[in-house]
Design a protein around this nucleic acid. Structure first.
Lengths: 325, 325
DNA sequence: CTCAAAACTGGGAGCGCTCACAGTTCCTCA
DNA sequence: TGAGGAACTGTGAGCGCTCCCAGTTTTGAG
């Protein structure tokens, strides 16, 4: 930077100002500096800048989940991609951090609360991790993806309207004349699990408990839940599954049981992930507005970093009709 | 840090030493410092450290690809996950950077070559991006994932043995008695594209050109290529597809054409991605050792950072038999 | 023409660390 | 018993920026 100043014939201070918005820099100084920068090939040193400003121009993308799960989820990809892009557009870099094990969690927690990043994007489906409390305690700007069960009031979040999505889908199944509509839920310590189940009940009331089975968002779990359903309620004629991946498992289980889809049993998924279209038959599902979710998360986080108050954003979902229902 | 020093009754320098491996620190000083750190809740400031050491303890994970593609690929997930984990184990953070557009690429290139990271992991399938040259020119330690076409000698890389994997699979198809074996290749400016095709030719020699179609690693592209194949070589009885995603597309195309899999036409994929097991019928495919690829990439990068020379690592693949072939 | 305010500039201090170096203590062995 | 060396410790300089403040120039009324 001193080189640039020398070449441009100005002082360090002026170069710094020119680099940071150019307030109070004369046109001639500005252009001399631009030239000097080009000539010297100067690039700013972000560590020095962060040291001086106490701002890092980076945020952590924290995955607090028993690892494999999220990386299996095609939606997660889109989310990560969307957030990274949106942050890059704001000239902010993304630190990817895994907090699957308690040790990882402790490390990430120290790292983030130490102020090495300006904020954090939290992707975690399960409730009960102490991470969120630790981050809260240190007043780190945090935006969660999905409703953070038990923290709706004290942490900002962006979520799809899971409950309404479930209502749309179950309502659609009802309108198509299905009468014994079962559901395979997500884990009930996740907002996706409880909210989608709530939407199901919103439409159907307190239906037959035999029509409700709980899955774990995996394909194998979906298959197992479908088998359970078939066993307990053999007359089931439609099933609303809380994720496409589980729905793919359910499809396989139905095939093994000799039931045709959608003729004998209709299957509806949730997420509209890539696998939905690849299934046979292709899944009728609920689309989550993932790219909007990620841009909203970033927008919210930037506002928190600027000192604004927490907020929640709920985004609408959309039904996607294919052949499975 | 001064606080810690005061509380522990030692000097800054001793605290620093204690923090960095503890060479030449007495036991009593060490434990006093440990206590003081716990008491004060001190956490090191990585920016200050980086400024002083000229090392950032971070590496960039660069995706130089027209965006959506990689994020669609389930393998990419595993790779990112594996690398992040392996780096975290070495106490190195990962900066995720997208270099899809030329502007992004320029930004990333400046960022990385400015020495803000200690090295870079490059994930890019296509050849011809200037990024690799720019990084080379600045002597930034770089490890590529997959053979970097045209840069095999001057950049370190880790790759699965694509060619041998293709040989295994095509050999298997031959051994099962298939005679009109077609292939759907990846883009021919990618190593996966050319190497898997080369393996196919290794087994079959210069077969009928009508049996070769080029895809683009997408599901839709796979379906289109399959249709082309059916059109040009209606008697095709097996097809080796260079990726599972394309194979899923091929499956759909075959279904639409009224061909049964594997009875009329056998289909074999490549990657053993999650979608392989979800397909109907489940795909016979080649497994890439992704978690080993990622740990090897990290190991290689750390060695490069320590000043060792470039190297290449080729990892063996494995055939996974399911029902599609 | 004058003078206050606005626009601009330069330089010192400091962000929190590491590293080199000089100084101190403590062994060890002849 | 003393000298030489090993082990340990403290201090100052500096990494490359930004920010503040004081100083200088320019501008625009009156």
């Amino acid at each position: 930077m001193d080189d640039v100043a020398t070449v441009a014939g100005v002082s360090r201070g002026t170069v710094s100002r020119a680099l940071n918005g150019g307030r109070n820099v004369s046109g001639s100084a500005q252009s001399a500096i631009d030239r000097a920068i080009r000539k010297t090939g100067y690039v700013i040193n972000p560590h020095a800048r962060s040291l001086a400003t106490q701002r890092s121009k980076s945020v952590a993308f924290i995955l607090s989940e028993p690892q494999d799960r999220l990386f299996e989820d095609p939606n997660f990809n889109l989310l990560l991609h969307g957030c990274t892009q949106a942050l890059a557009d704001n000239d902010i870099t993304v630190l990817l951090t895994l907090a699957g094990t308690p040790e990882d969690r402790a490390r990430v927690s120290r790292y983030v609360t130490a102020g090495h990043v300006d904020g954090a994007l939290l992707v975690s489906t399960h409730t009960g991790s102490p991470l969120i409390d630790e981050l809260r305690a240190q007043d780190v700007p945090v935006v969660a993806c999905g409703r953070p069960l038990g923290h709706e009031r004290d942490v900002a979040y962006v979520a799809a309207d899971d409950r309404d999505g479930a209502r749309q889908m179950v309502g659609y199944l009802v309108s198509r004349g299905y009468r014994r509509i079962g559901t395979i839920t997500g884990p009930l310590d996740t907002s996706g699990g409880v909210d989608r189940l709530a939407g199901y009940h919103d439409v159907l009331g307190e239906s037959d408990p035999n029509l409700v089975a709980t899955g774990d968002y995996t394909q194998a779990g979906g298959a197992a839940a479908m088998e359970l359903l078939l066993d307990r309620a053999p007359d089931v004629d439609a099933v609303f599954v809380a994720s496409d991946l589980m729905a793919a498992g359910a499809l396989a289980a139905l095939r093994r049981a000799g039931r045709r889809v959608p003729d004998d049993v209709a299957v509806a998924g949730f997420d509209d992930s890539r696998i939905a279209a690849a299934c046979h038959p292709p899944l009728t599902t609920i689309r989550q507005p993932l790219s909007r979710i990620s841009t909203e998360m970033v927008r919210l986080l930037l506002r928190l970093i600027d000192g604004e108050a927490n907020a929640a954003v709920i985004l609408p979902t959309e039904i996607v009709l294919r052949e499975s229902a």
